[in-house]
Structure formats: structure tokens, C-alpha cells
């Protein structure tokens, strides 16, 4: 069984790209389309890594990250925040929320894959 990666992303195209990229590389992918689902699924599935979008309906990626990191069981799960082209200070906000890494869109799938592998090996 490959490692489970939870992708929290409202954008279908992005979900497809990440899914295709990660499954092709041997990872299992679970998907959530909003922040609330993302937190719930993290609790339920206990993924090995979470890719978190920031602009999400309901609660945003920062809040979702905070909630997951606030949960003692989940706090060790690495979260890579994927944001749209950064407004200045977004990275800081993301780190403040407790994320482990930060990737700005447009991300290069190759480079993202590299980061994911670094966290999981």
C-alpha cells in the first residue's frame, strides 16, 4: 500500500492534476473539496501527508491547517500549503497556521512531487 495523501482542493483541474501526478507516482490520494471536509477526512483517514489549498469554500486553508495541527493525533501529519500566487505575507500566514511547507501556484508538478517525496521518505 502506497502512502495516503489527502488533497484539499476545491478546483477540479488541480485535483485531477495532483491525483494523476501522485497516483502515477504510487501514492494513494484522498480528496476533499472544502476545508470542513478536509479536517473531517484528516481525522477519519489519518493521511501520511496533506496538500492544502488556501482559497477554500467554508473555512479556508489556514483555518483548516490550524484545526488539524491543534488535534494532537493529527499534529504530526506534514501539511504542504499550496496557495495561489502569493500575496505578500501569505507564506508567513501559512507557517503561522502551522504548515510544514509552502508551495506557490503555479506549482511545477515535478517540483511538488519532489517535496512530497522528501517528506515521506
Amino acid at each position: 500500500m502506497g502512502k495516503l495523501i489527502l488533497v484539499v482542493e476545491d478546483q477540479e483541474d488541480n485535483r485531477i492534476i495532483l491525483r494523476d501526478l501522485l497516483t502515477n507516482s504510487g501514492f494513494e490520494v484522498a480528496e476533499a473539496v472544502n476545508g470542513i471536509d478536509g479536517v473531517r477526512m484528516a481525522e477519519e483517514l489519518l493521511p501520511d501527508l496533506i496538500l492544502m489549498d488556501i482559497q477554500l469554500p467554508g473555512i479556508d486553508g489556514y483555518e483548516a491547517t490550524r484545526q488539524i495541527k491543534a488535534n494532537a493525533i493529527l499534529s504530526s501529519i506534514p501539511i504542504i500549503v499550496v496557495t495561489s500566487y502569493a500575496l505578500s505575507g501569505d507564506d508567513k500566514k501559512a507557517y503561522n497556521a502551522g504548515c510544514d511547507d509552502y508551495v506557490a501556484k503555479p506549482f511545477s508538478p515535478r517540483k511538488l512531487l519532489e517535496k512530497v517525496r522528501n517528506f515521506l521518505n
Binding site: Q11, D13, I17, D20, L21, P106, F107, P109
Partner: peptide
């Protein structure tokens, strides 16, 4: 940028022979 990101993402995936 959102659709463009998707276009670039898919392109890279194809170039990387994911499909």
C-alpha cells in the same frame, strides 16, 4: 491564472509521460 495553472499542469504531466 487559475485555468492557466491547470493548462500548465496538464502540459507538464503529459511531457512527463504521466499519461
Amino acid at each position: 491564472r487559475t485555468p492557466l495553472n491547470a493548462i500548465l499542469g496538464y502540459t507538464e504531466l503529459i511531457i512527463d509521460k504521466i499519461y
